Simulated assay, not measured.
Amino acid sequence: MTTVRVVRVVAALITDPQGRLLLVRKRGTRRFMQAGGKPEADETARGALVRELSEELGLTVAESSLALLGPYVTDAANEPGHRLEAEVFRLQLSAGVAAALEPHAEIEELRWATPAQAAELGDRLAPLARLLL
């Protein structure tokens, strides 16, 4: 019997006024995904996501602006053989805030994509991102 390793994260489905999705790619990887990351032991899911968005994108948001979409389970994008358990929140940004985002920390690239453009990434789109489309 094999033990399934689980990666627990919080993630943000971020959109702009045109309905485009924000996708990020971490340094040293090839897959695009939602911004977010692993909560620390003492953090709530919302608190962890607020911290991750600040670290990864320089984005300051209030916990109250994060609307819970729910829990999602998929294969992990960058950890072969691992299952991803994600608590996903929706966040809509104004045009000005969206345009000012820049990659920070381990984020190497960010891009705004329509759902069709995201789907065109094929296997470069992380399983969770594909599920959220």
Results as ranks from 00 to 15, higher is better:
Thr2Ser: 15
Thr3Arg: 10
Val6Met: 08
Val6Phe: 12
Val9Trp: 05
Ala12Met: 00
Ala12Cys: 04
Leu13Met: 02
Ile14Thr: 09
Thr15Met: 05
Asp16Asn: 14
Asp16Ser: 06
Gln18Ser: 15
Gln18Trp: 12
Gln18Lys: 10
Gly19Ser: 08
Leu21Ser: 01
Leu21Asp: 12
Leu22Val: 02
Leu22Cys: 01
Leu22Ala: 00
Leu23Asn: 14
Leu23Gln: 12
Leu23Met: 11
Val24Ala: 13
Val24His: 09
Arg25Ala: 10
Arg25Pro: 12
Gly28Asp: 14
Arg31Ala: 15
Phe32Pro: 02
Met33Gly: 14
Met33Asp: 15
Met33Ala: 14
Ala35His: 05
Gly36Leu: 04
Gly37Thr: 05
Gly37Cys: 07
Lys38Pro: 09
Pro39Ala: 08
Ala41Gln: 02
Ala41Val: 02
Thr44Arg: 06
Ala45Glu: 15
Ala45His: 12
Ala45Ile: 04
Gly47Ser: 13
Ala48Ser: 14
Leu49Gln: 08
Val50Gln: 11
Glu52Val: 11
Glu55Thr: 08
Glu55Asn: 11
Glu56Trp: 06
Gly58Met: 10
Gly58Cys: 09
Gly58His: 02
Gly58Tyr: 00
Leu59Pro: 11
Leu59Trp: 04
Thr60Val: 09
Val61Thr: 05
Glu63Cys: 00
Ser64Cys: 01
Ser65Phe: 00
Leu66Met: 03
Leu66Lys: 00
Leu66Val: 01
Leu66Phe: 01
Ala67Pro: 02
Ala67Val: 06
Leu68Cys: 08
Leu69Pro: 05
Gly70Pro: 09
Pro71Tyr: 00
Pro71Cys: 03
Tyr72Asn: 06
Tyr72Leu: 11
Asp75Trp: 05
Ala76Val: 00
Ala76Ser: 12
Ala77Tyr: 07
Ala77Val: 01
Asn78Asp: 15
Asn78Ser: 13
Glu79Asp: 14
Glu79His: 12
Glu79Ser: 13
Pro80Ser: 08
Pro80Trp: 08
His82Asn: 10
His82Phe: 14
His82Glu: 12
Leu84Thr: 02
Leu84Phe: 02
Leu84Asp: 04
Glu85Val: 11
Glu87Gln: 14
Glu87Ile: 06
Val88Phe: 00
Phe89Cys: 02
Phe89Lys: 01
Phe89Gly: 08
Arg90Ala: 15
Leu91Arg: 02
Leu93Trp: 08
Leu93Cys: 12
Gly96Pro: 05
Val97Ile: 13
Ala98Asn: 09
Ala100Gly: 13
Ala100Lys: 02
Leu101Lys: 01
Leu101Gln: 03
Pro103Val: 02
Pro103Thr: 03
Pro103Ala: 00
His104Ser: 11
His104Lys: 13
His104Trp: 13
Arg111Ala: 11
Arg111Thr: 06
Trp112Ile: 11
Trp112Asp: 12
Trp112Glu: 15
Ala113Cys: 14
Thr114Tyr: 09
Pro115Phe: 10
Ala116Glu: 15
Ala116Cys: 03
Gln117Gly: 10
Ala118His: 04
Ala118Phe: 04
Ala119Asp: 15
Ala119Ile: 05
Leu121Asn: 14
Asp123Leu: 08
Arg124Pro: 00
Arg124Cys: 07
Arg124Thr: 03
Leu125Arg: 00
Ala126Asn: 07
Ala126Phe: 03
Ala126Lys: 03
Pro127Leu: 08
Pro127Gln: 07
Leu128Gln: 06
Leu128Cys: 11
Ala129Asp: 12
Ala129Arg: 04
Leu131Ile: 04
Leu131Gln: 15
Leu131Pro: 05
Leu132Lys: 04
Leu133Glu: 13
Leu133Phe: 10
Leu133Trp: 06
